[in-house]
């Protein structure tokens, strides 16, 4: 609080003081015939007194609000300000204090309610996914025993969509349910290809893997999920060939997934990993949810991996996942 700002707030008071002092001065000079010098002295003392009376108030308030501002600035979660507030020693401050206590409490209650709800919802989703997996497993076995390839393929799709729900729920969780372990690019890529086998075979996809026998540190299950999302996209957007290759460099190993699909428009490329973004291809193919790549990036961030894409329209897309080497033993 600057002194000038404070004084501006006291403008009415100051005007009245000046006004009454002036009238007093005029009165005593004109009516009682007091000498001018004496009148001026009286006026001066009155004005100085009135001004000086404001100083303690200014100092109290300045100290309090400056302290408040500093605490607010240093606070990570601003809505907790009420908890670190001192009890003020002036009346308006007390009103503010009481109000902040009430609103702060109500806000915290609300936040707690929502986070409990979100937590419960997430737990419900996880439980539901695990529940539904038993009937899906039953149906898959049935379809294999009656040798119905089309049914198996549809069930694979249901399974992968259900899996997406699970990973979406997990991607927002605070606790880590992943384990970073040593594995190879080969291992995660072949696992992903095997689980997407039926879909890829049905689309007559030509698949090639080259030079993947490189160690990486990551969670295999999450990485396989990410790869399956990328494979899904390649299938969805017109690829007929898929190549997995590695690009080792200092301090990291990159996995490249190249397809010969329809490609992504330059203007869309920066946003394909954004939530809900479907872009030109999504509009044309009409099946995009804007979730797959968003989840990929989010899970990559959690695992400490980098992900980016480059593309040429009509020629294909290359998605690159960068695995940093963090192993202290290598």
């Amino acid at each position: 609080m600057k002194f000038s700002d404070f004084m501006r707030g006291k403008l009415l008071y100051l005007t009245i003081v000046v006004f009454t002092t002036t009238i007093t001065a005029l009165l005593i000079t004109a009516v009682f015939g007091v000498d001018w010098p004496f009148t001026l002295l009286t006026v001066g003392v009155l004005l100085a007194g009135s001004l000086f009376a404001l100083v303690p108030e200014y100092l109290t308030k300045r100290r309090y609000y400056r302290d408040l501002e500093e605490r607010l600035a240093s606070l990570d979660r601003k809505h907790l300000i009420a908890a670190v507030l001192d009890y003020p020693d002036f009346e308006e401050g007390r009103i503010l204090y009481e109000m902040l206590q009430v609103t702060g409490k109500s806000m915290n209650d609300e936040i707690a309610r929502f986070s409990t709800e979100a937590q419960e919802y997430r737990e419900y989703i996880e439980m539901w996914v695990h529940e539904i997996k038993t009937p899906i497993a039953g149906m898959k076995l049935l379809s294999e025993n009656i040798r119905n390839g089309n049914l198996s393929a549809e069930l694979d799709r249901v399974d992968s969509l259900v899996e997406q729900v699970l990973f979406y729920a997990r991607s927002n969780a605070v606790e880590k349910d992943y384990q970073i372990r040593r594995t190879t690019l080969e291992s995660v890529v072949t696992t992903a290809l095997k689980s997407s086998a039926r879909q890829l075979i049905a689309k007559k996809m030509r698949v090639q893997t080259t030079g993947l026998d490189l160690p990486v540190l990551t969670d295999a299950k999450w990485t396989v999920f990410i790869l399956r999302q990328l494979i899904d996209n390649s299938v969805k957007y017109g690829a007929s060939a898929l190549e997995f290759s590695a690009e080792p460099s200092v301090g990291s190993v990159a996995l490249l997934l190249s397809d010969d699909g329809i490609g992504i428009e330059e203007k869309d490329l920066d946003r394909i990993f954004d939530k809900g973004f479907t872009g030109e291809n999504g509009r044309r193919f009409g099946k995009a949810t804007g979730l797959g790549l968003y989840l990929c990036r989010k899970l990559c961030q959690k695992l400490g991996l980098g992900i980016d894409a480059r593309s040429v329209i009509g020629e294909g897309t290359v998605v690159r996942i960068v695995f940093p080497e963090r192993d202290p033993f290598s």
């Binding site: 072949t190 039926r198 049905a202 996809m205």
Partner: peptide, 17 residues
């Protein structure tokens, strides 16, 4: 079926087309 054979081969890491 050919798809079934291919699926079986894929499960042994042979990603044949």
């Amino acid at each position: 079926s050919r798809d079934e054979i291919m699926n079986a081969l894929w499960q042994t890491d042979a990603f044949v087309d």
